[in-house]
Nucleic acid binder design. Structure first.
Lengths: 251, 251
DNA sequence: CGAAATTTTGAGTTCACTCAAGGATGGTGG
DNA sequence: CCACCATCCTTGAGTGAACTCAAAATTTCG
């Protein structure tokens, strides 16, 4: 069973098959491997089947800003395809499985299959909405609340993708990554996590995150899931598509 | 003469007329007036004809994060239309002129006019790219560099929109707005601006910004305009469309 | 001209950072 | 199976960038 094609499983049969049929064979990325680099001419649109990746930008002085953590069902590169080049890089944080639709096939699908086009634009727009929320998070919230917000988001997205069920799940994001995502230093992230633990909100150890008080964590993180636009029918995480080898990273 | 429809002037004649013809009569916003609120069901897609607006999110504790400064040629609300509700609010910072295409007409245009659809998606994707750059700016750069970056971006966008020519132009963004855009306090913005002035990079007074050393300012701001995706044909700022009353806010 | 908004200044504080070192953990190969 | 290495996590101490509060000066607008 494959982790999920996210919303793309909800497409009408014909278009769903067209979409899945357009994908090249699934491809496995090693942890730390780059899938695309900022400035690259995008050669295709990639859908994440399994694993956790990060979008990022490199700045002068070696700083890095993580822009998001794509997981199963998320798309990599549609914007790059349509604007001509990638505005950010993408790297696997865990072993990951992805499948790519070549540039031409993808543009054809978007032009001729309205439901596919709609599903893709939805993903793109939700990504933009998430970027807005992250900007607000990094710009306005103190470290403690900022980290809580990130954890809330990932929990909800993991559940929506069918990766996590319940308050205990694999957390493949290092404190260094959390620092780069939130604009904090990794030392400070570590201290904030200890505080969240002392406050009985979460524990995070050995790659496993446990949420002890979901309501309080959301309150602290000032989190409401509206910006994720998950409000369509439930059940879109049950995958029915093509079988592929899965890398193991989750619990 | 109208300030500009941005890239929409580049559409083939037939589609350009369809696009302009779909707009309701231009509408004037007062400074400080809200055009849309987060959570609103979007009723149309609005194109900015003149003036400067801001997209923003309100957070708990009364904090506000500004997500961008739409100017002539920019679109408000296409994402809101397609996702069902706005993920952020939009407010005029200066008197502004805008024109709206009603929901149904807009969706029809997108579905039936490929060049219009392409132009709109381009705008949407560039907005997302800008949000990514802002996230990196706010997350990683110190205040001094962060403000420099914002000034560089606005200068380039003002020029591309035909609003500014040369290094001296109207700057309707208060220090309070700059603070909310960059995640700094307005007091600190003020001190950074004084430092930029002491360093002979800019002067900003009475709503007029002068850039004294563009090369140095870009260096300080770690600014390259790639993420704005302005690389298509020049001359798209010459407006030829319908005439409308213009509010005066620029030099 | 007066009221409101914005900018500026000063003083004191704090949140988050840097630097540095020591402990865990996990993967790899002998 | 264990030794080793790389990565990641943790802790301590000192520093600094940016913040808050408060009030005065300036500009804008009705």
């Amino acid at each position: 069973m494959t982790r999920g094609y996210g919303r793309f499983n909800l497409l009408p049969d014909e278009e769903r098959q067209a979409f899945f049929g357009a994908m090249r064979p699934a491809q496995v990325l090693q942890s730390g491997e780059d899938l695309a680099m900022e400035g690259d001419r995008a050669t295709g649109c990639t859908i994440v089947l399994d694993g956790v990746l990060c979008r990022y930008k490199l700045l002068s002085e070696g700083k890095r800003q993580i822009l998001g953590f794509p997981i199963a069902g998320d798309l990599i590169g549609p914007a790059g395809l349509m604007l001509g080049r990638m505005d950010h890089s993408v790297r696997a944080l865990t072993p990951a499985t992805v499948a790519t639709i070549p540039r031409h096939t993808f543009l054809d699908l978007v032009a001729t299959q309205p439901h596919i086009a709609q599903a893709i634009w939805r993903e793109v727009l939700v990504d933009a909405s998430i970027a807005h929320e992250w900007l607000a998070n990094v710009g306005q919230r103190p470290a403690y609340h900022r980290i809580a917000h990130l954890i809330c988001e990932m929990r909800v997205r993991f559940e929506a993708a069918g990766i996590a069920t319940g308050p205990r799940f694999a957390w493949p994001i290092t404190q260094g990554h959390m620092a780069e995502a939130t604009g904090l230093s990794s030392v400070h992230v570590n201290r904030v996590l200890q505080q969240l633990r002392a406050d009985r909100l979460i524990t995070l150890a050995l790659g496993v995150l446990t949420i002890h008080d979901w309501a309080a964590l959301q309150r602290v993180g000032d989190f409401t899931p509206d910006y994720l636009f998950l409000n369509s029918r439930a059940g879109d995480a049950q995958a029915t598509g093509a079988v592929c080898e899965l890398t193991r990273w989750s619990l």
